[in-house]
Nucleic acid binder design. Structure first.
Lengths: 241, 241
DNA sequence: CGCAGGTTTGAGAGGAGTCAAGGGTTGTGG
DNA sequence: CCACAACCCTTGACTCCTCTCAAACCTGCG
């Protein structure tokens, strides 16, 4: 899963090849992109307002969120980025209004936009792979529009936990199991469009029902089937073969 | 705005060139894409389940929505497509779970995926333009996540009307004015994550306040400034120069 | 003319927010 | 090793926004 030493971009390459076939030559181009290691403290927003962002940000370890701030200062997280994902890939085609936030201490790699853009220009298959990566992210966003618009708090939370499970550990095995999810209840609130207070009550309800348990930045799934049912979760939108 | 006769794709080309520079050669490639005229009755869902969708759908006239259906059958509209836009451009890189719906009698043109995909493969600038078009759509979706998660009903409705205004007629002139928006209150409900009943009450409230007026599939903006303020609307995410 | 789809109104219920306060944990520094 | 300060989690009471259910009323169209 993690690449050989000296190829820090291989987790991202792995992601791409899961949905888009790439030739050896194309793989080598990606692995050759320059990148700069960067550590970000928990709850740090970036880029700072005014700071230029001419780089894409690969998450190596930790958890990164994209968010919009809305009038009254309420924060809405619009996407979560796990290790191996590039947080602001859209920035290559579109200077972005949304900003990023590290939800936990995070290790990242900055990749200059120029490197990615010129590789995409030169190679059709590569460009299509990156485009597809963005399209999958958009499909996840569309799913969340449905969750926020048409599901109640408990469903949303169940859906979030189910989705994270899938994205962190892949297709879940039966029975109960746990996976890391380094966010606070306030972060969950910013994602699900709820209050952190209500998030707390919903989590209690899920735990009380023996469905799932969130504490110490870890999720215990107690009953995968009922978690899926409660959230109305259908993994096809994730496009994970 | 609409192209010369015999070039049905020129409205879409115009959209692309507004955000992405294209050479004459690249423009000619787009105008050369084959397309098939198709009329769709109001409230028709398509493609029918099981029906293959190996074409992109340019909206020529009318209004098309992408929606997800969720568990209990509640419908959530995740995107609106106006004349000149391609409704399922993402379908080129990602077979899509979401479906489309004509909100009013609509004229479309079906463009085979193959034509678009091979053009994108062959030409980097063209591929980037299409990718950018998708990225802008994703930015709109992100804005709507914020609206659904962090704004109340009245704000959402005001934001929707302001956005549509911008997208239909461009930067609004001062004073009051109107523009066509061929949707029903039920459609507005499916978009804003509300009940059609509550949509009705919110529209009444906006009208009562002298902000905007929706009837007979038309929006009268009475006070643009207050509409923007009520919705917390900031047009930058639309990337319309 | 009559029907179907769309709009409007009202009363009541409930989900989620707000306000306010208390208890736990973690990490830092003395 | 302890004390303190942030930060995070938890609880309770009350409010209010939005949904639900139910019934009329339009209105364009066949």
């Amino acid at each position: 899963m993690t690449g050989p030493k000296g190829f820090p971009l291989s987790p991202f390459l792995y992601r791409l090849t899961r949905h888009s076939p790439l030739s050896d030559e194309e793989c080598r181009i990606i692995l050759g992109w320059p990148s700069l290691l960067d550590r970000i403290g928990a709850n740090r927003d970036f880029p700072r307002p005014g700071e230029p962002s001419d780089y894409a940000l690969l998450v190596v370890d930790g958890l990164v969120a994209r968010f919009c701030q809305s009038g009254g200062g309420a924060r809405q997280i619009t996407a979560l980025y796990l290790p191996g994902e590039i947080a602001n890939l859209e920035g290559i085609t579109h200077p972005d209004a949304c900003r990023l936030e590290a939800l936990s201490p995070t290790v990242t790699r900055k990749i200059p936009h120029d490197a990615i853009r010129s590789a995409a220009r030169a190679c059709g298959a590569l460009s299509e792979a990156l485009w597809r990566e963005c399209t999958i992210a958009a499909a996840i966003q569309a799913q969340w529009l449905t969750n926020l618009g048409r599901r109640d708090a408990k469903s949303r939370m169940a859906h979030l936990l189910a989705e994270m499970d899938y994205r962190v550990v892949g297709k879940p095995c039966a029975g109960h199991f746990k996976f890391p999810f380094p966010a606070t209840q306030t972060h969950l609130a910013d994602f699900t469009g709820l209050t952190s207070i209500h998030v707390n009550r919903v989590l209690q309800s899920l735990r009380h029902d023996g469905i799932a348990h969130f504490s110490h930045r870890e999720v215990h799934v107690l009953d995968w089937k009922r978690l899926v049912a409660t959230g109305g979760f259908d993994a096809t939108y994730l496009a994970q073969p």
